[in-house]
Amino acid sequence: MVKRNLKIYFRDKASVFFSMLSVIIIFALYILFIGDSVNSGLKFLPHPNRLMRAWMLASASITTSLGAYGVMISDRENKAIKDFYSSPVSRRQVAGGYIVTGFIISIIMSIFTLIFGEIYLGLAGGAVLDIETLLKLFAVIVLSSFASSAIASFIISFLKTNSSYSAASTIVGTLIGFLVGAYIPIGSLPDNVQWLVKYFPCAHSAVLYRQLLMKPAIKANFANQPASVLKEIKEMFGIVFVYDGHTAPAWVSVAVLLVTGVVFYLLAVLVMTWKQNEI
């Protein structure tokens, strides 16, 4: 199932492109609009562009999961899924095949985004990450893909047609972009929206990405700045989350993503397995 689904997905060039569309939009928004407006408030730093480019890459790296489930929707719409259910394969295995496919595609597309972003940062004069940081980033990619693709699989499990899938992808993709602070720095949002972001599971992926990707830029920009300024910037750009005056350590974000992945994958498997209209 996984091998078959991967072949179908990567054979459809349009599907791959639209999976990367949110990433392309974030890069375009930064280059055309966000970069200059935010950089204008960071002119006191020696290298504000490095800081913002790393922030942009961290935001773009977590928006690729929803497009990985188009194969399942197509199988539902053309009734191919009934053929699987009539074969000597359990429903749980069929559901698991779609879910594992989504997880793998999410990892692949996230790695591609990271490579593309690193090339962009290198050409733009940013710091190229060392091997240790890249290995940590790969671990974050796997963890982030685990959680985000779990949520995506749960959402997709309720959809039957490509039209509903396209609509959901557009709406959810845009909403997630705002809720992880991909389009606007979290500190620029109203207080009640900031709290919503901090309790949104995928936003914790963004925190882990930013802490790793922005580390060289922070070192280059804040070596001679007061600690209070660095603290304010970290909160503004979602590099850390603060709850009631306490800064959440990285392990909190890791725990949130692990729990989110387990819960939503179990829910997705249950929905895909037990839906009566697919008997």
Results as ranks from 00 to 15, higher is better:
residue 147 A to M: 02
residue 140 V to Y: 13
residue 123 L to W: 14
residue 184 I to V: 15
residue 178 F to T: 10
residue 167 A to R: 05
residue 142 V to A: 04
residue 202 C to V: 15
residue 98 Y to P: 00
residue 183 Y to G: 05
residue 102 G to T: 10
residue 211 Q to M: 13
residue 210 R to C: 00
residue 116 F to E: 03
residue 171 I to W: 14
residue 96 G to Q: 06
residue 127 A to Y: 09
residue 130 D to C: 08
residue 97 G to Y: 11
residue 159 L to I: 14
residue 138 F to D: 02
residue 108 I to S: 04
residue 95 A to I: 04
residue 148 S to P: 07
residue 187 G to S: 06
residue 95 A to S: 07
residue 100 V to P: 02
residue 207 V to W: 01
residue 128 V to H: 08
residue 175 L to W: 15
residue 116 F to Y: 07
residue 145 S to M: 00
residue 212 L to M: 14
residue 110 S to D: 08
residue 193 V to L: 14
residue 108 I to D: 02
residue 193 V to W: 13
residue 121 L to K: 08
residue 112 F to S: 08
residue 129 L to S: 07
residue 195 W to F: 12
residue 123 L to D: 07
residue 155 I to E: 00
residue 97 G to M: 08
residue 145 S to E: 00
residue 115 I to T: 01
residue 202 C to K: 06
residue 175 L to D: 10
residue 136 K to P: 04
residue 134 L to S: 06
residue 150 A to S: 14
residue 160 K to S: 15
residue 178 F to V: 12
residue 172 V to E: 07
residue 117 G to Q: 01
residue 197 V to A: 08
residue 178 F to E: 13
residue 186 I to Y: 13
residue 94 V to I: 15
residue 109 M to L: 12
residue 135 L to I: 14
residue 191 D to G: 09
residue 129 L to N: 07
residue 206 A to V: 10
residue 164 S to F: 11
residue 184 I to Y: 09
residue 142 V to D: 00
residue 163 S to H: 11
residue 116 F to C: 09
residue 174 T to E: 07
residue 185 P to Q: 11
residue 207 V to A: 03
residue 99 I to D: 01
residue 198 K to F: 04
residue 95 A to H: 01
residue 178 F to C: 10
residue 191 D to L: 15
residue 148 S to Y: 05
residue 184 I to F: 10
residue 118 E to F: 09
residue 104 I to F: 05
residue 140 V to M: 08
residue 135 L to R: 03
residue 108 I to M: 10
residue 143 L to W: 08
residue 108 I to W: 04
residue 144 S to L: 02
residue 175 L to S: 15
residue 155 I to W: 03
residue 133 T to K: 06
residue 134 L to M: 13
residue 149 S to E: 07
residue 185 P to D: 14
residue 182 A to E: 03
residue 196 L to A: 15
residue 180 V to S: 12
residue 152 A to K: 04
residue 139 A to C: 09
residue 148 S to N: 13
residue 124 A to W: 05
residue 200 F to P: 06
residue 138 F to P: 02
residue 136 K to N: 14
residue 179 L to T: 12
residue 150 A to N: 01
residue 110 S to Y: 06
residue 175 L to T: 15
residue 127 A to T: 10
residue 201 P to Y: 02
residue 207 V to G: 04
residue 201 P to C: 09
residue 120 Y to H: 09
residue 214 M to G: 08
residue 188 S to Q: 14
residue 120 Y to G: 08
